[in-house]
Simulated scan of single mutants.
Amino acid sequence: MKTVKIIRIPILPMHMVNAHLLVGPDGCILVDAGLPGSEKKIEKALVKERLTWKDIKLIVITHAHVDHAGSAAIIREKSGAPILAHEGDAKHYNQEQPMTFCPTGWFGRLFLKTPLMYEPYLRFEPDILLKAQEVIHLERYGVPGAVSHTPGHTSGSISVNLSTKEALVGDLIASGILLGGILRKKHAIRPPFEEDPYAVGQELIRLLDSGMQKFHMGHGGPLDACEVKRHAQSLLSLKRH
């Protein structure tokens, strides 16, 4: 089996916000672009791996929140790599429509009183727009795996599923206290915002059923399959209640 090196890039301290670099046998893919101004931290990670911007073959943006899409336009300019995203969030990437937020608890409600989630970023049109339940295979970009639609956090959320049985799921799940990194790093939690928790639970179960064993996310992590299953089942129980 071909291996993929997953490099977690801390955009904020204590893994409160992460981007990830996938180094495959034939290429390199960036998953998420962090907040506006994150390009310097991403470049530092590239240099550490003896890579340059031109080694990035694809930029995958898991969803349109500013802490994932904030530096996408500038990184595309530096690397020349296309941006892949889902049509469900397209109106947010091009700023045709502002994001809306559904808090999952007190922290999310508090967060909405700060300017962070409303911070503007350079608008862009994705070069590759995933449609509906379309799956795009990543071998052509040098990494064995695929991108699929995993809605629930936002309508256009997507995940990267690697042949190594590891998944990069953006904000389908988070871990730790508050935003990911202080304590209980191996304990799954809901992110501060979530449009449809039941849909998230369904998508996490689908990923587990497909064989995914380790989950990497935008806030905290990584988490193993058992903890993800526990969290997914708790989300599914919300509908029954």
Rank of each mutant, 00 (worst) to 15 (best):
A45H: 04
I9N: 01
V17M: 04
E96G: 01
R206K: 14
N161F: 03
N18T: 07
A174C: 11
L235C: 06
K131D: 02
R230T: 10
S155D: 14
H149S: 15
A69G: 06
L129K: 15
K41T: 10
M1F: 01
W53S: 15
W106H: 03
M16S: 11
N18C: 03
Q213P: 10
G221V: 09
L58T: 00
G80L: 08
H153C: 12
H187E: 13
F107M: 12
G27A: 10
M99N: 15
V23G: 03
P82V: 04
G218I: 08
Y121Q: 15
H20L: 08
G24F: 03
H187F: 09
F124N: 01
I6E: 00
I29A: 02
G145R: 03
L116H: 02
L130T: 04
G176N: 10
K40T: 15
A72C: 12
L51K: 12
L116K: 08
V23R: 04
R240W: 03
L46T: 09
S210K: 11
G180H: 11
S210N: 07
R123D: 01
S79E: 08
Y93R: 00
A85I: 01
R50Q: 06
M117Y: 07
I136V: 15
L110T: 05
L204E: 15
L172A: 08
K91Y: 09
A81L: 05
Q213T: 14
Q213I: 13
D196Q: 10
A167F: 03
G220A: 11
L235F: 03
H137I: 04
R109N: 05
M217C: 06
R206T: 14
V4M: 05
G176E: 12
T100M: 05
T154C: 09
H231C: 01
T3M: 09
S71K: 02
R240N: 12
F193W: 07
E227L: 08
I177S: 14
L110G: 04
G156V: 03
E166L: 02
L46S: 08
H137V: 06
V169F: 02
Y93G: 02
K165A: 11
E195K: 15
E77Q: 09
E203G: 01
N18R: 00
A45R: 07
P151G: 10
Y121N: 15
E194I: 15
E194Q: 15
L168V: 12
R140A: 06
K5E: 13
G24R: 00
L172S: 08
I182E: 14
D209V: 01
F107W: 15
P25Y: 07
T154L: 05
K44N: 12
R76N: 08
I189L: 12
D55G: 06
H68T: 06
L179R: 09
D224N: 15
D89P: 08
I177H: 09
M99P: 00
V147M: 07
S234F: 13
H63K: 05
L84Q: 10
A199G: 04
T100P: 01
S175C: 11
W106E: 06
H92R: 13
G105A: 00
R184F: 07
S148P: 03
Y121L: 10
P103Q: 08
K91W: 02
E43D: 07
L130D: 00
V66P: 11
D209G: 03
I11H: 06
I158E: 04
K78W: 10
R109A: 13
I75M: 15
P197D: 07
H153E: 10
E134A: 06
M16A: 06
R140Q: 11
G220P: 05
L22S: 11
R76M: 01
T114N: 06
S159E: 02
